[in-house]
């Protein structure tokens, strides 16, 4: 029992990061009808700025991350204004390829801007916040120790707050109404007097900012490099498909499910051992394969995603 609980609680950081990345991907997909492959690399670019600010200029962590998010907003805006506004007639696959061209440009650009070292040491959020010497909360429960990482809890809290605010905005603000209208049909939304240019520009900047926030959080558990967000980004795409692109909450539930499922399956070995049995099958090694395979089956059964609605297609 405690093993399962720990497996869940240990994933707080990854869940927080994946949720942010998934929301950014979904927002772009809904307003610009493309999957943004550059999401991860824009985030990495912002994270390099944050790392430089924190390590070289000793800026307090809040300001550092805020400046990084502003950079993310800037990059997102430039991408939308310079490329996507001009390339409206490009088809969906073309747009995907444009975003991967961006990946190339950013991958090449990072060493030019930030010098040759691949990994910039980046201390966790946690150290800067002075939350005490003990990195975890731990207590006994049901015959086992439960460990909760303070860093993970903190990041999950920030994510929950940010996502809640954005959901409220989507539900009640004029911008949110515009986003929902643009997502349902960009052309009609334009005819109805919605400034779709503005909507997509704001969406790209929000996606950029969320990406940098996610990257700054993830940097506490992984060394940063131009491609350090790739795994998260791939999971974000899959989570969005699993949850279904037609709602905003579906992808987020998908983003919570994938790391949880992987961690739970990975912990099966120690569960088997602790309950007296033994297993010859290494679950930890095969956990991602099992999760992806399960997800594939789920999508094949429900192609619109777990929470998606079937959309009738006019021929």
């Amino acid at each position: 029992m405690s093993i399962f609980l720990n497996a869940i609680l240990g994933q707080f950081l990854v869940i927080a990061v994946t949720v942010l990345a998934t929301f950014a991907v979904t927002l772009i997909f809904k307003t610009s009808t493309t999957t943004n492959f550059a999401q991860g690399s824009i985030a990495a670019l912002g994270c390099y700025v944050v790392a430089d600010l924190l390590n070289k200029y000793k800026v307090p962590v809040y300001y550092g991350v805020l400046v990084g998010m502003v950079v993310g907003i800037g990059v997102g805006l430039v991408v939308d204004l310079v490329i996507f506004r001009k390339g409206r007639n490009v088809n969906a696959i073309g747009k995907q390829i444009i975003t991967m061209g961006l990946v190339s440009v950013i991958f090449g650009g990072i060493p030019v801007i930030f010098g040759s070292p691949e990994n910039i040491p980046f201390a966790p959020f946690y150290n800067y916040m002075e939350l005490g010497a003990e990195p975890n909360f731990s207590f006994a429960l049901g015959g086992g120790d439960i460990v909760i990482s303070k860093n993970g809890l903190l990041n999950l809290g920030i994510t929950a707050l940010v996502i809640t605010v954005i959901f409220l905005l989507l539900r009640y603000s004029k911008w949110g109404l515009g986003v929902r209208a643009t997502a349902s049909n960009e052309f009609t939304a334009e005819l109805m007097g919605i400034n779709t240019h503005m909507i997509t520009a704001v969406s790209w900047s929000i996606a950029g900012a969320l990406g940098v926030l996610a990257a700054a959080m993830y940097a506490s558990s992984s060394a940063i490099s131009p491609s350090f967000m790739t795994t998260i980004q791939v999971n974000a795409f899959l989570a969005a498909i699993l949850g279904g692109f037609s709602t905003f909450y579906g992808p987020i539930i998908g983003a919570v499910l994938i790391p949880l499922a992987a961690s739970l399956i990975g912990s099966l070995n120690s569960v088997l051992v602790s309950s007296g049995g033994s297993s010859s099958f290494d679950f930890a090694r095969w956990s991602m394969i099992i999760v992806y395979a399960l997800m594939l089956v789920a999508i094949l059964i429900k192609p619109q995603g777990l929470f998606g609605k079937r959309i009738a297609k006019k021929v």
């Binding site: 791939v234 394969i289 992806y292 997800m295 094949l300 192609p303």
Partner: peptide
């Protein structure tokens, strides 16, 4: 699979398949 799922969805699904194969190779 492609008979059931189309467009960008198919692209992402095949990406998932590719990840399965990559993890399989690593295992």
């Amino acid at each position: 699979i492609s008979l059931r799922i189309e467009g960008i969805y198919l692209a992402i699904l095949t990406l998932g398949l590719s990840e399965i194969l990559r993890n399989l190779l690593m295992a």
